[in-house]
């Protein structure tokens, strides 16, 4: 039985935006009542399109942003207040990497300096050994000592993402939140980084919250998956089960949109309508204006995430009523 390392309960987070130059401010909910668990040593994938709230969820999970509602618990304890000494201590165990490695690196510091930096900031280990620890981590991510004195500009995209990973892992974190870590990389480099993440997870027992829109990569790397649409989780379950037999109409469309060589194009579900706008969230089920199965109650009542017999959960009135064959 695996234990839960990170637990989000009823998380909501809203932002105020001004509509138009002189318009009044309106609040919109980027994340609305999201609950999920990351299990120790396993990978939970968070998927959805832009505006679905997946990155905000990742930031709230790390305590980079406070939730308006709900709680985040790391190893059973609530996250301390942001910027408190206790929070800083706990943050060494939770790290994050982003899509664009060049933006995450300091262009004027060598790779070795950047990987060593977190050890200095958090004062971890004897000063004399820190360089050796940093070098060891560079080796572990497949960046030989030859690259240690390079500046980020001298590395390829894949090497930069490895450097970012080394810097996150040098603290020996228990949890790594990855926000689209391979989206900007070519397929071959992407394969290297995905393999690396999986190997390191095996070796270090790392838990991953993997935020991505790429269902092929998600299928490869994660054991569980949560699908988000306009701030809410619409489907949750074992990755293999959800991707091979998606139940929510949105998940179905998302799965069918993955280009697979050899699969006939006409089998694709092409959704009508525009991508969701978080600032103008439709009433009821946010997906109903684009949903081919929508009926009257979908426009008025928000469907709740209902756990199914197989352990998965779906938030859909039509699926819940059993009037659709899976």
């Amino acid at each position: 039985m695996t234990s839960t390392i990170l637990e989000l309960r009823g998380i909501s987070r809203s932002y105020a935006i001004r509509q138009g130059l002189l318009g009044r401010k309106v609040r919109f909910r980027a994340v609305d009542d999201v609950s999920l668990n990351v299990e120790e040593g396993r990978t939970l994938a968070l998927v959805g399109e832009s505006g679905s709230g997946k990155s905000t969820t990742g930031r709230v999970a790390l305590g980079l942003e406070p939730p308006d509602d709900g709680t985040v618990r790391f190893r059973g304890a609530a996250l301390p207040e942001i910027d408190s000494p206790a929070w800083r201590r706990i943050r060494t165990q939770m790290q994050m990497i982003f899509q664009d490695p060049l933006a995450a690196l300091d262009r004027r510091l060598t790779i070795l300096e950047q990987v060593r930096e977190p050890l200095d900031i958090h004062d971890i280990g004897p000063t004399g050994e820190r360089e050796a620890v940093a070098l060891e981590m560079l080796n572990a991510v497949g960046l030989g000592t030859g690259h240690a004195t390079n500046l980020p500009g001298q590395l390829s995209g894949g090497q930069r993402q490895r450097a970012v990973l080394a810097r996150a892992l040098v603290m020996r974190p228990a949890l790594l939140v990855c926000d689209e870590p391979v989206s900007a990389l070519d397929v071959s480099i992407q394969a290297q980084v995905v393999n690396l993440l999986m190997d390191i997870q095996d070796r270090m027992g790392l838990s991953l919250l993997f935020i991505s829109h790429d269902l092929k990569v998600v299928r490869q790397i994660s054991q569980r998956i949560a699908v988000m649409y306009l701030g809410r989780i619409v489907e949750l379950g074992e990755t293999q089960a959800v991707l091979s037999n998606p139940l929510h109409p949105y998940t179905k469309a998302l799965v069918s949109a993955v280009p697979v060589p050899g699969r006939p194009t006409h089998a694709r579900i092409v959704l009508e309508g525009e991508p969701p706008n978080p600032a103008a969230r439709p009433s009821g089920c946010a997906f109903h204006p684009r949903c081919p199965l929508a009926r009257s109650e979908c426009a008025s009542d928000i469907p709740q995430l209902t756990v199914r017999r197989d352990g998965g959960a779906v938030a859909c009135h039509v699926v819940a009523s059993g009037k659709v064959c899976a």
């Binding site: 949109a257 993955v258 694709r268 991508p275």
Partner: peptide, 13 residues
């Protein structure tokens, strides 16, 4: 996004 990509590809075809 993926669902919009599907729309544009269908349109081009």
């Amino acid at each position: 996004d993926a669902t919009i990509q599907a729309q544009i590809l269908a349109l081009l075809t």
